[in-house]
């Protein structure tokens, strides 16, 4: 099994971190992973994206032309990556920002009101973790327990409250999709 995920959005929406937590959680679960960022001008406020691949066999190409999952955090990202998505692939949309439908009908679409849920938790920044939670529930590729560990690794030395906050966002994201 090898699954590929493209995560895209505005700089500042935390898409790189979302990808890293997915990769780290999968690694902690014993899977092979790669995380490949777009880098360059995108880093300075435009759109950013990263490609994460997880699998139980060795991963060759870290580059993907037909992803299994696309997580789009804004409209340009949805438009850019929709056509690449695999037939019957999964598209997770941040419906707080994306107010339109993808044009393809042969994909599974999940809408997450990520900004609203994050605001309700009390920190608008955790919208990426809300989305990550939804991704975990929808795909089953990463487990909550491993996400918790990955967050501990990532925020090592930081406030425990920060980890709890992010983990709460992941939980609420999971609960937001059925």
């Amino acid at each position: 099994m090898i699954k590929s995920i493209i995560i895209a959005g505005f700089g500042g929406q935390g898409v790189m971190l979302m990808g890293k937590i997915i990769a780290e959680s999968a690694m902690l679960d014993g899977l092979n992973v790669t995380w490949l960022p777009s880098y360059g001008p995108e880093m300075r406020g435009g759109t950013a994206n990263c490609t994460v691949i997880v699998g139980d066999e060795p991963i060759g190409s870290p580059v993907v032309d037909v992803p299994d999952v696309v997580i789009a955090m804004n409209i340009p990202s949805m438009i850019k990556f929709e056509e690449m998505l695999k037939k019957d692939g999964i598209m997770i949309l941040n419906s707080s920002v994306i107010d339109r439908e993808p044009s393809r009908k042969d994909i599974k679409v999940y809408k997450i009101d990520a900004n609203k849920i994050a605001d309700a938790i009390g920190n608008s920044k955790v919208l990426n973790m809300v989305t990550l939670g939804a991704f975990a529930r929808v795909t089953g590729l990463v487990k909550l327990e491993m996400i918790g560990k990955a967050l501990e690794e990532t925020f090592a030395g930081k406030n425990k409250k920060l980890i709890d906050l992010n983990l709460e966002a992941v939980r609420q994201g999971m609960n937001s999709v059925s």
């Binding site: 890293k20 990769a23 992973v33 790669t34 995380w35 490949l36 960022p37 880098y39 870290p62 580059v63």
Partner: peptide, 10 residues
């Protein structure tokens, strides 16, 4: 190349 430099892997 830039890909090996920038990517993450265990």
């Amino acid at each position: 190349d830039g890909m090996i430099g920038q990517m993450m892997e265990p």
